[in-house]
Amino acid sequence: MSCWDTIADYGLRSLGYGERLLPRSDFTLCQQVVLIGSGMLWNIYFGTLALIAGFVMATAVAMGKAARNPVIAKISAWFIFIFRGSPLFIQFFFAYFLFLSLKNAVPFFTVLTSAWAGALVVLFLNTAAYSGEIFYGALQSVPKGEAEAADAYGFGGWKKFRKITWPTMLRLAWPAYTNEAIFLFHATTLVFFSGFPAQSQRGDALYYANYFADKTFNPFVPYPVLAGYFILLTLVIIGLFGLINRRLNRHLPQERRSRMQMRMPVLR
């Protein structure tokens, strides 16, 4: 069987297409690369959707934490603290239990007990909290002069936020936010590792890497393959975010552009 056949059989295995049974003997390197790559689809799915949805919520949370209203500020601060203060591993575990009991009460929540929806919700809340903290920090360091200038031009409320505060906040937060994105993608590997079950052997990259390590009893091939995929993914993320960073900073003179330093992210 050539490698092309393997790709046809297993390329979309993680989504449930192609060969039903996973390879069980005579494992080839090609099979490992293809299946683990197929699992990467899930990592990308989780990471991308959580990142996009989390971005919107993070902005809201950051505004909330900076709000004058003490109730809103407290709620936002607690949300951030709970999700940043506890390991994602344990969050997954609890979320799964919570969704199960919700499901027993209201059938509507059934969908949340499967990984594709439930884990996505957890990752979404998690990244919202982390990015919220990053954005909050950036919001605090928006130069006072810019806000005053906006006032002077008669910008108010929404317009001021949309045109002045928000873009500056993003620009300041971007390097740290890039790191958060990288970490979020790494965190997606935990989905099938704690709590959420894998259905019909449709799992993420780590699930398949684990499968092969388990079947071949040799961890030295599948895990480095997995690592290779993630390094590629990380490079793509850095590239994409770098492009956006250029755009965010395009109005600044060359030497003042905030460099894409890979500074330590605000923790996961």
């Binding site: 049974l21 996973l22 590792f193 079950p197 894998a198 259905q199 019909s200 684990n210 388990d214």
Partner: peptide, 26 residues
């Protein structure tokens, strides 16, 4: 239906082989 089994056991392999819906736990 949906059948649960521990990952990496002969039972998990058996369920997968039957073509039944397998749910794997650690």
């Amino acid at each position: 239906g949906v059948l649960a089994a521990q990952t990496g056991t002969i039972q998990a392999a058996f369920v997968a082989q039957q073509g039944w819906t397998l749910l794997e736990f650690a």
